[in-house]
Design a protein around this nucleic acid. Structure first.
Lengths: 232, 232
DNA sequence: CTTTACAATTGATATTCGTCAATTCCAATT
DNA sequence: AATTGGAATTGACGAATATCAATTGTAAAG
């Protein structure tokens, strides 16, 4: 493993506070993998062998049942994933695929559980990580149940604009198809929703989105910090 | 606090493994509250002052935004709730109300965080609890996104039948209105869904549900352990 | 420059679901 | 037995969303 990658892992909140010796144990047993675009690296229903840390690229989490498929979330680097399955040693509930060429650090699950039992700082970090992700999922479920697709899109636009520093205009960070999946709708409906938002002063040209009338959009979207704010 | 209630708390997986002295600290600072039917004991957006443990009764978790309201889950005793907000010391994302007269043990949040930093066994139990609830939420989100209301109902009937020992016939544990909320649909649609399931051999008489043709129902519902099984 | 593959859009239609209103059912009283 | 309040059901309708099909746009490869 390149040293730079180990550094990225070490700097994550999840690993930052742990004892150096324990980190060495984990990272020493781990290895780095380069994974091409559109490769499924996690299959739901399987047993977790490794804690994954995304160092570079992007990963989509999805689940399929019967004919249907849904995207549950995306992960941008750096970040660990499938922590819950690893600590409980239970089957994956989601599948994961790369959205572009990616670098992933694989850390044996057994080692993670060992260190977790020995290193209180790591245990605390695991709790914080799980609690944050839990709350993030609660927000997703509320977003899905309390809002229409159009409202979800309007709020996503506002939230993303905040995230990138409130420029009023930005390029979509992912394909529209992927955005539709993330918002729990079909690509066709995303197109129609974008068209409807034109009335509220949202201009879309290819991947470029411009918020012309921020006030009108906000009034329609009525963002709710208990759904949209990233850190509450 | 009655001794019997302290015993119930002590026996929970969350508190079972911790040092007795730490448990004494927590339970000593806590107190027991009797709460009538239909009282909102948690308001979303507030700061968590107490970890709650439901000892008796039943609690519904819900969230409202704009005009709409949705039920996120129910909790039957015994069980702790709002753990994620307490450990992170962040605002509640859900509200909670009693579904009947209930007994709740309130443990100061500050004390929980203190002990969590001192007692590794407790920290591990918190991780297990959070990880389980996280996974439960993932299943909820998949259930919501991958299935129609009718399919959710069919699978709920099958899952509940398993839960109560597969008698093939059972009484609904909650009002139909509450069941509708839990399944993310309106009471009117629950009625219609029950009516549709008659074709598949589901008889409903008041609160009594009978599965006449288990095979047909299963074939339609196509239960998926990664959504429906309680412990995977 | 043209071809090609795929993303994106648009239109038509079907399904699912929510809303409103009118009953019916049921259980707890009086 | 009659009254009453809320739960539950049923019907009619409209909104939201999915599906299928056709077309347009776009960027990479020849």
């Amino acid at each position: 493993m390149r040293n730079a990658d180990a550094e990225i892992v070490r700097a994550l909140p999840l690993f930052r506070g742990m004892q150096q010796a324990h980190f060495q144990t984990l990272i020493g047993a781990g290895y780095l993998q380069r994974i091409p675009h559109r490769v499924v690296l996690i299959h739901e229903g399987q047993r977790p062998d490794f804690l994954h840390v995304l160092v570079e690229g992007a990963v989509e989490f999805f689940s399929a049942s019967r004919g249907r498929e849904t995207t549950l979330s995306f992960l941008m680097p750096p970040g660990a994933f499938i922590l819950a399955a690893v600590v409980l040693d239970q089957l994956y509930l989601k599948s994961a695929r790369t959205m572009e060429g990616s670098m992933v650090v694989l850390i044996p699950a057994e080692g993670v559980r060992d260190v977790f039992n020995k290193d209180p700082a790591f245990a605390r970090a695991v709790v914080a990580e799980l609690a944050l992700r839990y709350r993030s999922l609660v927000k997703d479920l509320k977003n899905q149940r309390l809002r229409s697709g159009l409202e979800r899109l309007a709020n996503w636009i506002l939230a993303h604009n905040e995230k990138v520093g409130r420029p009023g205009s930005f390029r979509l960070p992912i394909e529209k198809k992927a955005l539709a999946n993330l918002l729990g709708m079909r690509p066709e409906n995303l197109s129609r929703s974008f068209a409807e938002l034109a009335d509220l002063g949202v201009r879309v040209d290819g991947a470029k989105v411009t918020i012309v009338d921020s006030e009108a959009l906000t009034e329609f979207a009525r963002p709710d910090p208990l759904i949209d704010a990233p850190n509450t």
